[in-house]
């Protein structure tokens, strides 16, 4: 039996591990600024518990060269930092998708099986 606390921690780790690919996926078609990304992720229940934790992730992605940023003037306030996928960001997302699909199906196969 897995204790409830341990299970929570495990789910948090899974969320944390997959979050970066959700962010990369959100940037596939369009560049977006931080607040916009946070809003999109927060709309989906359970993906982020603390919105602020997106920013360390974005910073890390930028340093790893998976996204790049540009400042743009905003009509409604201070300039915004826009995030855009790089070539290697796109490649990382593709590689993840190739692994994730079969992985998800396999887990579903066992977890969803009627006993």
């Amino acid at each position: 039996m897995v204790a409830a606390g341990k299970q929570d921690a495990l789910l948090a780790q899974m969320r944390k591990g997959t979050l970066q690919y959700c962010v990369l996926a959100l940037l596939v078609d369009d560049e977006r600024y931080g607040f916009e990304l946070v809003r999109s992720l927060a709309e989906t229940d359970g993906m982020v518990t603390s919105e602020g934790t997106i920013y360390p992730l974005l910073s890390r992605l930028r340093r790893d060269g998976l996204v790049e940023t540009t400042w743009r003037e905003s009509s409604s306030g201070p300039p915004r930092r826009y995030y855009r996928l790089t070539k290697s960001g796109r490649a990382a997302l593709q590689a993840f998708k190739a692994e994730w699909g079969p992985f998800r199906d396999t887990v579903d196969h066992f977890v969803e099986r009627k006993t």
Binding site: G34, F35, V38, E51, G52, Y55, S76, P78
Partner: peptide, 29 residues
């Protein structure tokens, strides 16, 4: 970035109340 997030969220409010700001900060974590 987080200061920018807060400014952005506050700019989107029509009539800012203290509760709104508290909600923004709580959402950030």
């Amino acid at each position: 970035e987080i200061a920018g997030h807060i400014a952005e969220a506050r700019a989107g409010l029509e009539h800012e109340t203290e509760a709104d700001v508290r909600n923004i900060l709580e959402g950030l974590g």
